[in-house]
Amino acid sequence: MSLVGCYVALSKPLATALPVLLLAWMRFGIGGVAMLHWLRKPAGEPPLTRQTRRLLFLESFLGNFLFTLCMIYGVSLTNAVTAGVTMAAIPAAMALAGWAFLRERVAPRTWAAVVLAVLGIALFALSKPELPAQSAQALGAKNTSNLAWLGQWLLVGAVVCEAAYTVIGKKLTGSLGPKRISALINLWGFALTTPFGLYLARGFDFAAVGWGTWALLLFYALAACMWTVWLWMTGLQAVPAAQGGVFSVLLPVSAALVGVLVLGESLTGVQLLAFGIALASVLLATLPSRAALRVRPPEAPR
């Protein structure tokens, strides 16, 4: 999630230089080339069942394709504050989804960490200025006043998509390795965005894009499609969905730090308080329990 926050902050120039769906198509294409060797089935891995194939499609459709559309157009029809406060529900949504669909037992301390995570993200969002009207229109909304309700529902849809992404990913890690999951859902993402990418590429002036933007696109594609997905799926193999959801607080924290250290932005006192609450939620979720501390590790053979 820290890496996600970094590439989200650094991808701002990409969103102004390239159309969103063209950017997504190129991102999946670069990621697919980098992960070609991850598509090969390991020797000990069972063959893909019909249910696994269906889950792989849903993982990419909900977590990559639909989440991106709901988030971008939701922000364009509302404002940055509304989007941030709505996204604060992601840790709670992940915990509820893990409890409802995976039958995970959510410990009281994990619920407390989820509450702190929601408070931290919401407080950070409320401390940010609202998205100006001209910026919203630049994102594609011509009249945001009459369609704010639609934007809010799209943001809620993005939260549901993110929760589904975690739950489905947790189920997939039971039969597939993290590298193969990353490569297969990226392949589906490329297939879903190809019609839009080809259409937008026909009239786009690629020669007008500078070398710095291309280098940033390469980092963005590898980070978004390859590194972060592999790390997230590897973590889900050992961490419950509810506990994993708490780590989503690191996204706004790392994004803001990149903004300060790289883009020259500044932090307010309220934002620092929000970061403190967010980091406290991660600490609460990751500290070992008393029961775990009482269990001694087995002695090494002599």
Rank of each mutant, 00 (worst) to 15 (best):
L10A: 12
A17T: 04
L18V: 05
V20Q: 11
L21V: 11
L22P: 03
M26N: 00
M26W: 06
R27A: 05
R27G: 03
F28S: 09
G29S: 13
V33P: 04
L39S: 10
R40G: 10
R40V: 15
L55P: 00
L55M: 14
F57G: 01
S60E: 06
F61L: 15
Y73A: 02
V75D: 00
V75G: 05
P91R: 01
A93P: 11
M94F: 05
M94R: 00
A95H: 07
F101C: 02
A107C: 02
R109G: 01
R109C: 01
T110D: 10
T110E: 13
T110M: 01
V114R: 11
V118P: 05
V118I: 11
G120W: 06
I121W: 09
L123A: 08
F124E: 07
Q134I: 12
A136R: 14
L139Q: 07
A141N: 00
S145W: 12
N146T: 13
W149C: 03
G151Y: 11
G151D: 05
W153T: 13
L154D: 12
V159H: 09
A164L: 09
T166L: 14
T166A: 15
I168L: 13
T173Y: 03
S175K: 03
L187I: 02
L187S: 14
F190Y: 09
A191R: 07
T194L: 12
T194N: 01
Y199E: 11
L200Q: 15
L200Y: 15
A201N: 12
G203A: 11
W211Y: 12
G212D: 09
W214H: 09
Y220I: 00
A224R: 02
W227N: 00
W227F: 15
T228V: 15
T228I: 13
T228W: 08
T234H: 14
V239S: 06
Q243S: 11
L251G: 04
P252R: 10
V253R: 09
A255F: 10
V260E: 02
V260A: 08
L273E: 10
G276D: 09
L279R: 09
V282L: 02
L287S: 07
L287V: 14
A291F: 12
P297H: 11
A300F: 13
